[in-house]
Design a protein around this nucleic acid. Structure first.
Lengths: 234, 234
DNA sequence: GGAAAAAACTGACTTTATACAGTTATTTTT
DNA sequence: AAAAATAACTGTATAAAGTCAGTTTTTTCC
């Protein structure tokens, strides 16, 4: 008898966090090339790493810190994803044709970013197919996550979207049910596609319902199971 | 004096349409390998090419036709993109690790699909870096489009989203301001993240305002400039 | 440590969009 | 060509979420 394979719910998470395995796919020569053509910069909390519309000159490897990758237009912001350390950013600009950055990146905490010359990165992609295959996988993982968030933000209402983000923060960023939120309520809004006031109201509602414990920036998820149900049913 | 480079508005288009150039990057041997490990199938209007959650066995090359790529869950649908001919689909499942299809593909018109064995495709990606670099570019283009739609659906209201889609259909799919719509009003809803009733009302409003001419499925865009303004200001 | 600034919060009101319950039109089937 | 089914459309009621205008709390910076 065939087993019915039920697709799991559409993932809604907005964080991307992979290991540094791409570097190990390079030959010694190639590693050297990267080392010689990259610099490591330290950004303070709140600084902008790169700006949408600028010519893409580097691929960014976040060695340490927490950043947001977002679109801004006419005071409407949409956070595409949050990224923690050990993550390649700016890959979307690799395309030769349109080499403008499609998003802005800003830090939430002091962050260390290795800036790799984009031409060198392209060269390596063109010459090392193991490497480029790995990058394809990275891109696909990111895309899958974006799809999930796309679904979440367009098909769920406030409760579901907020539950999604809270679970995501706990599971993927802080790896703990208790955490100190580095994002403002307004950022939470940009992440969930809701107004700042709605974020505040909704979070209060979650608190009153015993789903979370909260005092300003410090948050604890109490009833994970119920949060997951809220996430699932939108 | 430096010129201020103003980033263009965030593109909102939902169609993907590239030339078949990927095939020409392959060697004769590789082309042969593809030919031997692919079959061409004809799907009738409304048929499902592949289903989310199934194991990914093929990469799909749409030789002819029009399809939707979408997510479905609990009677909520979200069309990720429309695709016309000469487009590779199913690339998101290339990742070795999680080889389940992340979306469903269904035809709008009779369509011809070349189904390429995914293992062979992976093999070529791993051995031909010119080819895989090209695929990276394809993926990035798709991602940029998804970002644009993500922004459109989460930051704009009904007018803006409908204007976006109408312009997109005219510019990218039909390449004409007059076209016979193959999507139902309900599909238009899945594409714009609005209810069927809202699609109908909004389209009537556009018609009453002289923006479009419309009789059931046949549509003509009249005042493109104004549609673009509506698109821009959400 | 205190003033200023920024962020968090609150309540009343308004707008936006969906849901529902139908009717009319169009397409498909027999 | 008529019947059945599907899709398009309409009006009303309702819900969801945003806006505005403020107050309170927290953080930042002399």
């Amino acid at each position: 008898m065939n087993q019915i394979i039920e697709p799991k719910g559409i993932s809604h998470c907005s964080v991307f966090d992979t290991e540094q395995s791409w570097y190990n796919l390079l030959t010694e020569d190639e590693k050297l090339l990267i080392d010689e053509n990259s610099v490591t910069l330290v950004f303070k909390k709140g600084e902008t790493v790169c700006k949408r519309g600028a010519f893409a000159s580097h691929i960014y490897f976040l060695e340490e810190g927490l950043v947001k990758v977002y679109l801004e237009e006419r005071n409407k912001n949409l956070i595409l994803m949050l990224s923690t350390k050990n993550n390649l950013l700016g890959l979307a600009a690799i395309y030769d044709g349109n080499n403008k950055l499609p998003y802005t990146i800003t830090t939430y905490t002091n962050s260390t970013v290795r800036m790799i010359d984009i031409q060198i990165f392209r060269q390596l992609l063109k010459q090392n197919s193991e490497f480029s295959f790995h990058i394809i996988n990275l891109l696909n993982e990111k895309t899958a996550q974006i799809y999930g968030r796309f679904f979440s933000l367009t098909q769920k209402q406030l409760h579901g979207r907020l539950a999604d983000i809270l679970l995501c923060l706990a599971n993927r960023i802080f790896k703990s049910n208790t955490f100190e939120l580095p994002l403002s309520r307004s950022d939470m809004g940009d992440l969930t596609g809701m107004s700042t006031e709605s974020v505040i109201r909704m979070m209060k509602e979650f608190k009153d319902d015993g789903l979370i414990e909260m005092h300003c920036k410090s948050i604890e998820l109490i009833d994970i199971a119920r949060l997951e149900r809220i996430s699932e049913f939108g």
